[in-house]
Design a protein around this nucleic acid. Structure first.
Length: 538
RNA sequence: CGGGGCGUAGCGCAGCCUGGUAGCGCACUCGGUUCGGGACCGAGGAGUCGGAGGUUCAAAUCCUCUCGCCCCGACCA
């Protein structure tokens, strides 16, 4: 059904201010729409949902309460999964002595270009009234602000590991890291970002590989069950590998502009970092051996993934399992006489709803009693993506009913429900919404994933006609030999990269059978064992 | 870091070319009428014109430098 609402906010491209010719009234709460300008739409959704804003510090964002609450939910859910797989949390320093970073050759090369460095520990008055680093307070050895913590954690682990009895060592840290990226985007790529990084040490190669895959699987499960975001799991090619890793695995999701988002990585580090940090242990056979390590992480980028997977032209849509509030109650009343009656009713309903369980968590209820216009309030929560909105006024109180609106339905699509029915059905409704979001995202991804059989087909799939902003392409499933030279060619000509070599996440997709088929590389003709995913990415 | 665009009230913008010391819409505050809803009328508050230097009697407007944002590229979670 067509939306007739008249948004008050959002950027208008044409027109200009000063009361000049107004642009035609947009019909969506977010301007522009996804189809018109996806990148700008993304920015506007974040702003309209009040998730975050940019800060005075280059590339760094301020995460606002609603955005932070989503991250907290991500943290809580993932943390439980880490604990359930035997991991413990710990915390390591923000600063890494420069020399530590230099211990692993590939690692240095990979991160050297994007490190923030601390060289002094004191400021003094400068010539122009400002502050300058005190030349007498120069650090003997500069400290790097961690871009990732393998080296500093490895240093600690060396002391923690002596015997095979100390293994496996399964540690996770929730932290911030800094990577001086050239180009930043809220949540997707910021100079400072928040993440968790798991670091584990094992006695055998097998165990370490198992751990790497286990955590990749934890990520895939989290993405699918909590974020309602379908992902394809599998190893990366050599060129996309984490600096210093033997193998990197990733989960890859398709956003609504059909670009891929790397949503989580798990690295098998072999003995490279153990060697660099000298992590050795005595085996049962009384031999001194070099350990095997892994590392794995997901970041605040996941919030960007949620935005781009589910949201529509009216704003954010949150999967219920990660929504800071499952239910938002919007009181409707006029004078003080009806207010008390309505608020009392709402208080008792909120209490009853909070006692419910959804996915083994408390149902979170927010009562928005702010004294602002009902319509504005309604739209605010639409844009913030709250799963359920309940409208309750005097008439509802009298009839013991509530008006229920779902974020996955039209904004005007409200149904009246008895209080008892709501209480009884709420968990099921949330579950249905969660599943619905997943199914929809899954259908979108599967629809825009194409089995590609030739170079021409590939170029055709990703060809752009006239408007550079139009959404085209998707995931190309193709036989590709993963030769770095050929990868460069695809990157230069089509901006494509091999996202991964999918191992799971595609069961029951219409093209599932094509994935594991062997065949000749569409560029070189060399034989390959299975198809890979080629896509443009964030 | 290269190319392009841009920073003027919370948000979106006009003013800059042709210097004279700030304006519009929405938001905000108050009053009223409305109101199961993204209203309407009236009154009002709010701006270091990103920052620093310079030219000038006078700078949002001209010049230099700088910081930040957005888009495209290279780099990447």
């Amino acid at each position: 059904m067509a939306q007739q609402d008249n948004p008050k906010q959002g950027s208008s491209k044409g027109g200009g201010g000063g009361g000049k010719g107004a642009a035609p009234a947009p019909k969506t709460a977010i301007t522009p729409t996804r189809a018109d300008d996806y990148a700008e739409w993304y920015q506007q959704v974040i702003r309209a949902a009040d998730l975050a804003e940019s800060s005075p510090v280059r590339g760094c964002m301020v995460i606002k309460p609603w955005g932070w609450a989503i991250w907290e939910n991500i943290q809580r859910s993932l943390d439980r999964m880490f604990k359930d797989t035997g991991h413990k949390n710990a915390y390591f320093p923000l600063f890494i002595p420069k020399s530590f970073l230099e211990k692993e050759a590939e690692h240095v090369e990979g991160f050297a270009k994007e490190c923030a460095i601390v060289t002094h520990h004191r400021l003094i008055a400068g010539p122009n009234g400002g502050l300058i680093p005190d030349p007498n307070a120069r650090l003997e050895e500069p400290l790097v602000v961690r871009p990732t913590s393998e080296t500093i954690i490895g240093e600690a682990f060396r002391g923690w590991v002596q015997s095979y009895r100390d293994l496996p060592l399964l540690i996770n840290q929730w932290a911030n890291v800094v990577r001086w990226e050239m180009r930043t985007r809220l949540f997707l790529r910021t100079t400072e970002f928040l993440w968790q990084e798991g670091h584990t040490v094992h006695a055998t190669e097998n165990e370490a590989v198992e751990e790497t895959l286990r955590m990749l699987d934890v990520y895939a499960t989290f993405a699918e069950k909590f974020m309602a975001m379908p992902v394809l799991s599998g190893p990366k090619t050599e060129s996309e590998r984490f600096p210093g890793a033997v193998a990197t695995y990733a989960i890859e999701a398709m956003m609504q502009d059909r670009k891929a988002l790397q949503a989580g990585t798990s690295h098998f580090l072999g003995q490279n970092f153990a060697r660099a940090s000298n992590i050795r242990f005595q085996s049962k056979e009384e031999k001194e051996e070099l350990a095997w390590t892994t590392s794995w992480g997901v970041s605040t980028r996941l919030v960007g993934g949620i935005v781009m997977t589910h949201s529509d032209d009216d704003g954010l849509i949150l999967p219920p399992r990660l929504a800071p509030a499952h239910v938002v109650i919007l009181p409707v009343f006029r004078g003080d006489d009806t207010k008390q009656k309505v608020m009392d009713y709402i208080a008792s309903l909120a209490k009853e709803l909070r006692a419910l369980r959804y996915e083994d968590e408390r149902v979170e209820v927010e009562v928005d009693a702010r004294d602002i216009r009902g319509g504005d309030k309604q739209w605010e929560w639409v844009k913030k993506g709250a799963p359920i909105r309940l409208e309750i006024g005097p008439r509802d109180v009298d009839g013991n009913v509530v008006m229920v609106a779902r974020r996955d339905r039209g904004t005007k699509d409200k149904v009246s429900m008895s209080r008892a029915e709501l209480v009884e059905k709420l968990p099921a409704i949330l579950a249905e919404m969660q599943q619905g979001l997943y199914d929809k995202a899954r259908a979108y991804r599967d629809e825009h994933t194409r089995v590609i059989r030739s170079k021409d087909e590939l170029f055709d799939f990703f060809s752009t006609k006239d408007d550079a902003k139009q959404i085209t392409g998707g995931f190309a499933l193709a036989h590709f030999s993963c030769d770095p030279k050929l990868e460069t060619e695809l990157k230069e000509k089509l901006k494509l990269t091999v996202r991964n070599i999918p191992q799971s996440g595609f069961e029951s997709a219409p093209w599932a059978d094509a994935v594991k088929e062997p065949g000749p590389c569409i560029l070189s003709g060399a034989p390959t064992e299975q198809r890979v995913i080629l896509a443009r990415s964030y």
